[in-house]
Design a protein around this nucleic acid. Structure first.
Length: 569
RNA sequence: GCCCCGAUAGUUCAAGGGAUAGAACUUCCGCCUCCUAAGCGGAUGAUGCAGGUUCGAGUCCUGCUCGGGGCACCA
């Protein structure tokens, strides 16, 4: 079933019949600020502009001229708004029918059918267990992946492995000294390597030497680098897997050390007079020749004096590699610290006729006391958070679900922990700094992932206890008696719109906010509208269907955010 | 110094240029003979400062202040 159509679209035709000058896109449906005013509000601003009329006058004119038939029970022009009271049972039946018919596809606009999307994200330096700041990238990238797949894009998720650099060389040397180095020991080893490089010149020199041999393709060194980066990557991926982040393709930076395509690119830049060799024999790009307007960030080094490539060189090659995959949408999720750098790359790529990926930036996560710093130890490790959260959640589950095995209880506790962290991070607009409050994130109360999960568990509980078979779709007379039901159903009906705007804006935070609003609307319904003890069998069935539809929408939304919806908790 | 983001209750976050700026946490007062109290109801409380555009600005423009990020051989 096609669900891109607005549930209120049947109201448009009568309006266009009365005002042929208008188009469907001029008619927008808002919720009225108060239900007493109407079930739905149509702002007059757009139509007024087209008809060259004053909005308050136009709303009155609408009341006179438009014949809504039996869809509408009352028309209230209020200033520049036309407020309508609707035939609620008819609209409610329609909404529930659509949701249940589409099931886990409800909300998708199928905008990506036949299209391919490539997304690159996370790319944590292989040196330690990820902290929640880094994990923000993984959560955003992973949820965007889910969103685009939901929209029927064929998505390939890439992870760029930083397996080059002096840091890896130093780490590799330390690794040689420690027998059976484990992932947990790596952060200490990394810190030690850096400390030693500062005081021990010999040690630092060896690091560079290793890097050079790596670039030259020395098999022995390549194996060393490979071992240490694999160890790190494996450990990091295990942690990321706990929050549900998955990757399809791993691209190693070392693959792009020498790349023939770059010769052509450099030649093109030379033609534009944008490349020069500086006094220290480095190969430098002068971005001012490509449109860069100010002095800072004007120069970009491609190669060192000894002919070894810089990270930017490798990234250019990597970008071309990704372009070659021919995706219709090419995204990369980057920290705000990469903004200038990504713009510089984009300038060079575009100046030479290449595409560049669409960059999505996220800001840093701050702590109450200041910034997160691996070196200063002021970090919240994702692992630590998950362990603490799961332990807390397990206490609650053990009380609530006594009949379950400890394994089942732990499983739910882990789902709660993941929900807590993913929701806390994803609900915030990516371009804003988030202040992470450990205590609040562990409380599971209020505007949290676990709150939403809890409301889902209540829906499951009701449907579990429902006596008999629920029909697949509502019957002809679908009774809707309370405002709470109507508000909830209206909320559910907007899901495809939310998805559409999230795809356009390449964001998922609005889905998180939406899920929270649905959960709240359901909780109000839960308190105002008894389901299993409603007055009539028809009402019981109708409300059970409302629960089922809500559960479906919420499950769909939570899945995009990477949260599970346990049946009990 | 220059460039890019941001600034909304005590705190953490919402709000497609539109009606009385929403939640949550905290504090205070209530609610488990009633489908899960990880819940619900009530009370208190906010658009950094100064201008401008607009019928209408938290939202757009300018300046300032504060916070985050960046500005050639780290990746």
């Amino acid at each position: 079933m096609e669900n891109t159509v607005n549930p209120f679209e049947s109201l448009i035709a009568p309006i266009l019949a009365a005002f042929p000058e208008l188009e469907a896109s001029d008619i927008v449906f808002n919720a009225a600020p108060k239900l007493e005013l109407g079930d739905v509000a149509i702002p007059m601003f757009l139509p007024a502009r087209k008809l060259k009329a004053a909005p308050p006058k136009l709303s009155a004119e609408f009341k006179e001229k438009v014949d809504f038939g039996d869809l509408v029970t009352e028309v209230n022009p209020t200033g520049p708004y036309l407020n309508l009271k609707l035939n609620r049972p008819a609209f409610s039946k329609d909404i529930v029918t659509r949701i249940l018919a589409d099931g886990d596809r409800f909300g998708s606009n199928h905008s990506g059918a036949g299209l391919r999307m490539l997304i690159e994200h996370t790319s944590i330096n292989p040196n330690a267990s990820p902290h929640v700041g880094r994990a923000r990238c993984a959560m955003i990238g992973d949820s965007l992946t889910r969103l685009f797949r939901f929209e029927d894009y064929e998505v390939d998720v890439h992870y760029y492995v930083n397996d080059m650099g002096r840091q890896i060389g130093l780490l590799a040397m330390i690794a040689e000294e420690i027998e059976d180095l484990t992932f947990d020991q790596i952060l200490d080893a990394y810190v030690e390597a850096n400390e030693r490089a500062k005081v021990d010149e010999d040690f630092a020199e060896k690091g560079y030497a290793l890097l050079s041999r790596m670039e030259e393709g020395d098999p022995e060194v390549q194996a060393m680098f490979r071992n240490i980066t694999d160890l790190c990557l494996k450990g990091q991926l295990a942690v990321l897997a706990r929050i549900g982040a998955q990757y399809d393709t791993f691209d190693r930076e070392s693959k792009y050390v020498k790349d023939a395509r770059l010769d052509a690119l450099v030649a093109q830049l030379k033609e534009k007079d944008a490349v020069f060799v500086d006094e220290k024999e480095r190969l430098v790009v002068d971005l001012s020749k490509l449109g860069h307007e100010y002095e800072e960030g004007r120069y970009f080094v491609l190669m060192r004096a000894n002919g070894s490539s810089m990270y930017g060189y490798r990234d250019l090659a990597y970008s071309m590699d990704k372009n070659a995959m021919g995706a219709d949408v090419n995204l990369m999720v980057l920290g705000e610290d990469h903004k200038l750098y990504a713009q510089q790359l984009k300038m060079m790529l575009e100046a030479t006729g290449h595409d560049s990926a669409e960059a999505i930036y996220y800001s840093y996560i701050l702590l109450k006391d200041g910034k997160m710093s691996t070196r200063q130890g002021t970090v919240v490790l994702l692992e630590d958070f998950l362990d603490q959260a799961a332990a807390l959640a397990q206490e609650r589950v053990a009380e609530q679900c006594k009949d379950m095995t400890p394994e089942e209880q732990l499983d739910i506790a882990n789902q709660v922990a993941v929900a807590a962290i993913r929701f806390a991070i994803l609900r915030v607009s990516p371009n804003k700094n988030v202040t992470f409050d450990m205590e609040a994130a562990l409380s599971f109360q209020g505007d949290t992932g676990p709150y939403i999960q809890y409301s889902c568990a209540r829906m499951h509980s009701i449907l579990r206890k429902y006596d008999g078979e629920l029909p697949a779709v509502p019957g002809d007379a679908f009774p809707v008696t309370e405002d709470a039901e109507w508000i909830l159903l209206n909320k559910l009906a907007t899901f495809p719109d939310i998805i559409n705007s999230c795809v356009e804006q390449r964001t998922v935070s609005a889905i998180a906010i939406y899920a929270l609003e649905v959960a709240r609307a359901f909780t109000t319904f839960y308190h105002d509208c008894p389901v299993l003890t409603a007055e009539t069998p028809e009402l019981i069935e109708a409300r059970a269907l409302v629960c089922k539809a809500t559960r479906q929408v919420l499950a769909n939304a939570l899945d995009l955010l990477g949260l599970d919806a346990p049946e009990r908790m």
